[in-house]
Amino acid sequence: MKPKRILMAKTGLDGHWRGPTIVARALRDAGFEVIMIGMATTAEIVAAAVDEDVDLVGLNIGGHIDVALRAVDAVQSAAPEMPIFAGGTIPPHACKQLEAKGLEVFPPGSMLADIVDSANRLTGLSEAP
């Protein structure tokens, strides 16, 4: 079976790479193909999600939640079926806003196993519990 493809992008101009790199490694170890485009604008994220024909979009969020919400809206408008998950330094109020848009959210302290489970579920590799 062709591996499922995940796009990972950073919505802000904040280059902390520890989090996304650890997550990408765990996802690759679990059999996913991960395409990392680093710090990207909303337009670049949408273009990459479509061009790369990915099954899931992962957003690393380190800044204001409105910037991330704009990217989420744009991806959902261009590809209504595209699942999205997010991680990063996301305070509780911002997690709720993302969850309200249907995202699974992984703030600091999340376990890699839970993130991999989420990727399996969101790409249809496993059933929702």
Binding site: L13, D14, T41, T42, G63, V67
Partner: peptide, 20 residues
């Protein structure tokens, strides 16, 4: 980045400005 706030990369993320 030595950008002013009117740089396209900053304009695309205007809400982030001043956060840090």
């Amino acid at each position: 980045h030595c950008y002013n706030v009117d740089h396209p990369e900053v304009l695309a993320r205007r809400e982030d400005v001043g956060l840090t």
